[in-house]
């Protein structure tokens, strides 16, 4: 079943077009990522889904309901964690959870959520005194306290340290395992790649691509590179003659082979036939960062390279 459907969404502020014909669907139980640079139209799209803004044109359906016309029903079923929203400084963790749970007709057990998010120890702590990670966890707990079918999480891990980010990610996976559909908005490519079943790349108010993270990477990268080191003499032609290889570059004992297809096994096979022992043989895998650049022509604002090698 479709949890979320956005069709031909348009939204402009005065002369500025924020969202220009965005369409995508999110299936029930999915973690669907929306990636894009700042100002790409992610937040406006999410605000329209949450019913905070009225689209200029296009339709949005949340579990078959319209966020504006069926406002009350949508709000019972949709949990939202907004970027740049906070809580009064002096409110305590347990108070915020109890208060927000009282807004819903069938809320989740807030004590259980507090436990799940590791906040029980902090239940008498004021919001102001929480760390960044704890604030973020409270914000997630409050997005889930209404027992939603669909949760929107906007810029989930901005400002968190690496350990807190990884903890938050495993938490989101646990939440998904309870059957909640998650719309994850982020400008961190590693986050989208790690968590999302599918990802929409939004650029300049449009959807540039929608696919699984692996699919996006495959679409964006036809070129592969294999690196290795050899201490023995090796004739370059052993590799240049291979069908999959387009280029071979050598720096001292370090070799870089560029090509396509089954590049790694072709190179490994050729080296074995030449009876050469290669050290540190590895395939440079493309990641979502590279795919993002390929689809949008600009670098994402990531916390640094996160290149997986294998």
């Amino acid at each position: 079943m479709t949890a979320l459907e956005v069709r031909h969404l348009h939204k402009r502020y005065g002369q500025q077009v924020a969202v220009n014909d965005v369409s995508f669907t999110v299936e029930e139980g999915e973690i669907f990522g929306i990636i894009g640079s700042n100002g790409a139209g992610k937040t406006t799209t999410v605000e329209c889904i949450a019913g905070l803004r009225t689209p200029d044109s296009g339709t949005i359906s949340v579990l078959g309901l319209d966020p504006i016309k069926d406002r009350a029903q949508v709000r019972e079923r949709l949990g939202v964690q907004l970027q740049e929203s906070s809580f009064p400084d002096a409110i305590k963790v347990a108070e915020a959870l109890e208060l927000y749970s009282s807004f819903y007709r069938k809320p989740a057990d807030w004590r259980e959520l507090m436990e799940l998010l590791g906040l029980t120890e902090k239940r008498h702590t004021r919001y102001k005194a929480l760390s960044g990670g704890q604030k973020q966890r409270l914000s997630i707990a409050l997005a889930l306290v209404g027992n939603p079918k669909v949760a929107i999480l906007d810029e989930l891990t901005t400002g968190l340290d690496p350990q807190a980010r990884r903890d938050t990610w495993s938490l989101i996976e646990r939440v998904r395992d309870t059957g909640v559909t998650i719309l994850l908005v982020t400008h961190f490519m590693d986050e989208a790649e790690r968590l999302s079943d599918r990802v929409a790349v939004i650029h300049g108010g449009r959807v540039a691509a929608v696919d699984t993270p692996a699919g996006l990477i495959a679409q964006a990268s036809t070129v592969q590179q294999v690196r290795f080191r050899v201490r023995q003499p090796l004739d370059k032609r052993v590799l240049t003659e291979l069908r999959d290889v387009t280029d071979v570059a050598i720096t001292d004992d370090r070799w870089l082979v560029t090509g396509s297809g089954q590049l790694l096994s072709s190179v490994a096979g050729a080296l074995a036939r030449a009876q050469v022992v290669a050290e540190d043989l590895r395939l440079d895998r493309r990641n979502l960062d590279d795919a993002f650049v390929a689809f949008t022509g600009r670098a994402p604002q990531s916390p640094g390279p996160f290149r997986k090698e294998g």
Partner: peptide, 17 residues
């Protein structure tokens, strides 16, 4: 104004309240 400035009013408008 603090509630508005810090998105507290906005956050509540995403709930049934």
């Amino acid at each position: 104004t603090t509630y508005r400035e810090r998105g507290i009013l906005r956050r509540v408008s995403t709930t049934p309240a």
